[in-house]
Nucleic acid binder design. Structure first.
Lengths: 216, 216, 216, 216
DNA sequence: CATGAATGAGTATTCATTCAT
DNA sequence: GATGAATGAATACTCATTCAT
């Protein structure tokens, strides 16, 4: 009796499903959505085209799931990092920093979430929008708490969240395109100052936060 | 003698070329680059496929020209608006405002330049990057002058320019996706405050600038 | 249980592959390479365009395989016929005769190998050259052995092989073009005499060889 | 009054016609029939597409005229060379030699007449056949006279003419394909011996003829 | 006579999706 | 469950030819 056969059939199926997702992640990130053929995913996951279609209804479904779970992981990571802080402003700062750090170490993830997502054409605008909204909302949440706290003066935190996310996004985009490659984290100190100032955090306070975080 | 017959042959050709560009602009903006067939452009401009290919070597060439000229128009518009101001901070502010105002009135232009550009796949990342770099550099220029002026404290103006552009871009993106539609310019006051604060402009000064511009 | 169902899937695929090659052979021979559309091949082999592309990467690949296998068959046939003879001069003679006989019965094969091959344009000159070289070399081989044998006096057998092949080729070409059709084999006795004499075989010896072969 | 204007209008037209033919000759010879666009011919002859179509009804017509006139020139050249000889066998030999010599110096002409002619597909088989028939008939004519003369024994001179032409053709083809290039005329002595022997000319006589021609 | 703009039929190739085995 | 053969719609681009000016 082979190893394969001792496992529950479902277990094998789950494993294959994962393999497919992994292969799809890599291939989408490398070549973009449109340029990725199902055949390529099938081969990379040692399956057949039919195998892929057993697990996923369409190519779009694979992409959708990938976007969602990748974003999930990132959000979780951000929330774990943030949990250690209690000051909402420091939390927002940590959130930005975590995103930058994560991307700096996972260029592919960045490509998938921030650049190639657009390569998919019209159908995906909603998908992409969802992603942007989700991250913007995360930031808006921290800012809202900061307002409630009285740490910062009231402002339209939705727009501020979007602006923060947009600024972050652009910095990542530029880094992805940069040739020769640069250090993503080099932009962090400047970006932090810009963002915190933008919501009215005093320079003295920014230096304080920076000092607290430095040991990291 | 019909109007048609009095025109120079070249004039007719130029006109057709324009018609093709117009049709391409609309179709790209509606459906994205990949989803737009040359045939569709030909039909919309009352030409034949061959006619399109007489005027443009490839589909990519049409897109490229469109991106360039559209961006040109926007940059010119920004520069004209800015010319009336002498304070570099006010100039940067006006630049942002002009972009928002222009897009608010030309949703399609916004789609083409800021959203669908990505739909074109890998080949166009360079093209898109160029566009982003161009606008970022515009902003960076105003900030540089403000630093030289002593209006703002020294900072990494390249990153600031990118962050400003990113924030602006995201606000426009969200507006393009918003359902139901919103007023793009509603975001302007908040965005202005965020951006100006981010480079260390004092709130008092911001109010001053706002007051100056209000009559517009 | 139908015949179809008892066959292995692979067997069906192999059969379809053959059908495609057959259809391509006929269509290329009838219309030439450039004038043959993949669609035509697909229809003639009761497949779809995609089906053809599943089995062959490009149109060129189909043509190449066809050229190779057809030439293979002819060369094998020649070598089988020749095996019965030991006199190299008679072998060379038999080789020529076998080619003529085979073509006389397979006009299409002749068209494909000797005429339409050129219709393919520049890319195929190498392919065609290979074919010519191959047949010329076959003849050169026999002549070389005849020289070693002492049956004929030394001479530049490469050029002689090319000249023989060229003469044969032209006779077949003319026959293919002839209107009204003629009997290809009618040319054989004259051609034999010309070729054998050209390498210095005495007329008496030629008559001997002719006598030996006559019963065939 | 410009130089252009002093000439008869017809004269200018004739000149342009020639320019078009020259350009077509070069382009066909370089790229083959199918790969040659009318536009290329127009540009090379400093005309417009319309200009080309004023002088020639179709692309095919240009090719046809080119084939004919080029062949004419070659035949005339052969006949001039041959006129100096009275012995028909020597005449045939000179004919072959002249063709080889001419091609050796005009590789392009050779390409046009002997190789690329086929690139044109079905429509041109008749054209090509005509060319082959014409040259074969030329040779057949000399051989016929040699038979009448009693210089050689009677034989099917039509087939012999075709065989000679075929042999010659193949030698030229191989030379055109040869990489690295070879000296076409190196093949001549062997080819002469092969061809003359093939129609029964004794080796002693061949040596005589060779001696006569050597000074050339 | 000359021009060059316009036409449109023609073609190889790709790929998501289906389904018989 | 898995396979891979088959489908066919979709698409950018070429080029001989026409014809208004």
């Amino acid at each position: 009796m082979s190893h394969e056969k001792t496992r529950e059939p479902q277990e094998r199926a789950v494993e294959r499903r994962e393999r497919i997702l992994d292969a799809a992640f890599t291939t989408f990130a490398e070549n973009g959505y449109r340029e990725t053929a199902i055949d390529a995913i099938a081969q990379r996951s040692s399956t057949s085209k039919g195998g892929v279609y057993f697990h996923f209804a369409t190519k779009e479904a694979i992409f959708r799931e990938l976007m969602r779970t990748t974003a999930d992981k990132l959000v979780e990571k951000v929330e774990r990092s943030v949990a250690a802080e209690s000051d909402p402003i420091a939390q927002a700062d940590i959130a930005i920093r975590t995103v930058l750090e994560t991307f700096a170490g996972h260029r592919r993830m960045a490509r998938l979430l921030f650049v190639d997502a657009f390569g998919a054409g019209r159908i995906f605008h909603a998908q992409v929008a969802e992603l942007h909204v989700r991250f913007s909302a995360l930031i808006t949440g921290y800012l809202d708490r900061a307002v409630v706290d009285g740490t910062i003066d009231p402002l339209d935190t939705r727009i501020a969240g979007e602006a923060w996310f947009g600024a972050l996004n652009e910095i990542v985009d530029r880094w992805l395109m940069a040739d020769p490659p640069t250090q993503l984290l080099d932009a962090y100190p400047t970006l932090r100052t810009l963002l915190l100032r933008s919501v009215g955090v005093a320079d003295a306070r920014i230096r304080e936060i920076a000092a607290t975080l430095r040991p990291r």
